[in-house]
Structures are given as C-alpha cells and as structure tokens.
C-alpha cells in the first residue's frame, strides 16, 4: 500500500458550530500539499482536527490505511506533527535542549539529526546554548520546524510558517520543506504567501467556508498564479 494521509469526508465542529463540511483530499508521502484560502475558512481547523484538537469530527482521517484517532500524543506517535502558527518554543530551554527533547528515533538509520537541522538552519547552530525564548521570531520559527522534523514524522503540517518573517528566513523555511519532501515526509502547508506555496507545492486545494472548492496540480497553479493571488486578496 502506498503511504498516504487521506481525509475522507471530514467535518469538524467547535461546540454547535460546524467549521469543516466534508473535506476530502489526500497527501501522498514525499509531497507538499498546500491549503490556500482566506482567514477563517477552515485551513487551521483541518490541521487541528488532524491532531485531535477540535471538539468533534465526522468522517475519517486515514494514515497509511489506519484510522488516525485518539489523543494528540498518540496521533503524533502514529506519525503526524503540527507546527502551529503561534510557534511557541520551549522558551526556558536552550536551543539544543529544544531539539534534543523532540528527537524520536525510529531505528531506521534514516533519522533526521541535530547536525542536519543545523545544516539547514545554520543560525540555530550559532545559538545552541541560548534560551530559545530570547531568540527572534524568525529564529524561533526555524527552531519549531527543526523540532518537528527531529520527531521523524511521516507527515508534517505547517500553519503559515512564514507569517511575519523576513525574506532570508522564508528561504530557510522553504529549504526545510524541500528537505522534508526529499526525506519522504508528506507536508501539508497552510500558507497565505502564494510565492512560497508555488515554490514548494505539488498540489493545491482552495478552502472556502470549510469546503474544498478547487484543486489544482502544480502546473495548473503555476499557470493561474494571478488568479490565486487575487483570491487571497481581501477586497
């Protein structure tokens, strides 16, 4: 069976409010799937539902043929991890401690290592003994992405990882996404920045009012760049 994260008619609720209305899409291994859309359309809720962080769901999320269910830590142990929008490093631990605490060896010999994280994010190497909470926002974002990769997930979800970052940091985040894909990790990227999404994405889904209203392959998205940018512009 091919490795895949599959959303089957997923609906999600916060209390009585239904946020997602029967989402269906899939994320093959070693691919980057981008969820695009305006704020409040259900992109983040999709990621939170994957981690078991919404009040109630209907439908199923299948991970390599097994239903993804149970408490958040169990889902993470099954192979999904989330880098939320608000970053939140372990502020009083050093950078190195943040990375070490996230390491989840798989015994495959292919594990992502701290040295590899430092290769992608050299700035982290320079800050190893610094308390993570004292770093800049961009550096903290690098740290949480590196931390997520060190857990050796099968699937990594990034929620607007470049929001508020300078171009140099955006480049490093893009490189980390490429690295994840090269390692066979499937990535779900929620992103408002069309240039970044187009630079790394393999497939694109437009989410509106909790539903996927449009799905595009990479070629189609590149051909309709202006249309996508227009869609993300609030009038």
């Amino acid at each position: 069976m091919n490795a895949v994260l599959r959303y089957e008619n997923l609906s999600a609720f916060y209390g009585a409010s239904q946020i997602l209305h029967g989402l269906s899409f899939e994320v093959p291994a070693a691919s980057v799937v981008c969820l695009l859309g305006l704020n409040g359309m259900g992109k983040t809720t999709t990621l939170r539902a994957t981690m078991g962080l919404v009040d109630r769901t209907e439908g199923r999320i299948m991970l390599n043929g097994r239903e993804l269910a149970g408490p958040t830590f169990r889902r993470a142990q099954m192979g999904v991890t989330l880098v939320p929008e608000d970053r939140k490093v372990f502020a009083n631990l050093t950078v190195e401690e943040n990375l070490e605490v996230a390491r989840r060896p798989t015994g495959s010999g292919q594990d992502f290592t701290i040295a590899e994280a430092v290769k992608i994010f050299p700035r982290l190497g320079e800050r190893m003994d610094q308390k993570a909470g004292t770093m800049s926002g961009g550096e903290q974002q690098m740290l949480v992405v590196a931390r997520a990769m060190l857990a050796n997930p099968a699937y990594m979800m990034l929620d607007e990882p470049t929001e508020g970052l300078s171009p140099s940091y955006v480049g490093a985040i893009a490189q980390s996404i490429e690295e994840a894909r090269n390692r066979g990790i499937g990535v779900i990227l929620v992103e408002q920045s069309i240039p970044l999404a187009l630079s790394v994405g393999d497939a694109f889904h437009v989410v509106e009012n909790g539903q996927i209203t449009r799905s595009l392959a990479r070629d189609e998205a590149l051909a309709d760049r202006e249309g996508l940018e227009r869609m993300l512009t609030v009038e």
Binding site: M51, P71, T72, F73, A76, Q77, T81, L82, V83, P84, K88, F90, A91, N92, L93, V101, A102, R104, V144, R147, A148, L150, A151
Partner: peptide, 12 residues
C-alpha cells in the same frame, strides 16, 4: 512545564 500542548505535538 514550558508548553504541554507542544509537547503533545511531538508525541509526548
């Protein structure tokens, strides 16, 4: 101690 939700995200 720092952030139990993030700790869950990495499988703790």
């Amino acid at each position: 101690r720092e952030n139990s939700e993030r700790a869950r995200f990495i499988g703790m």
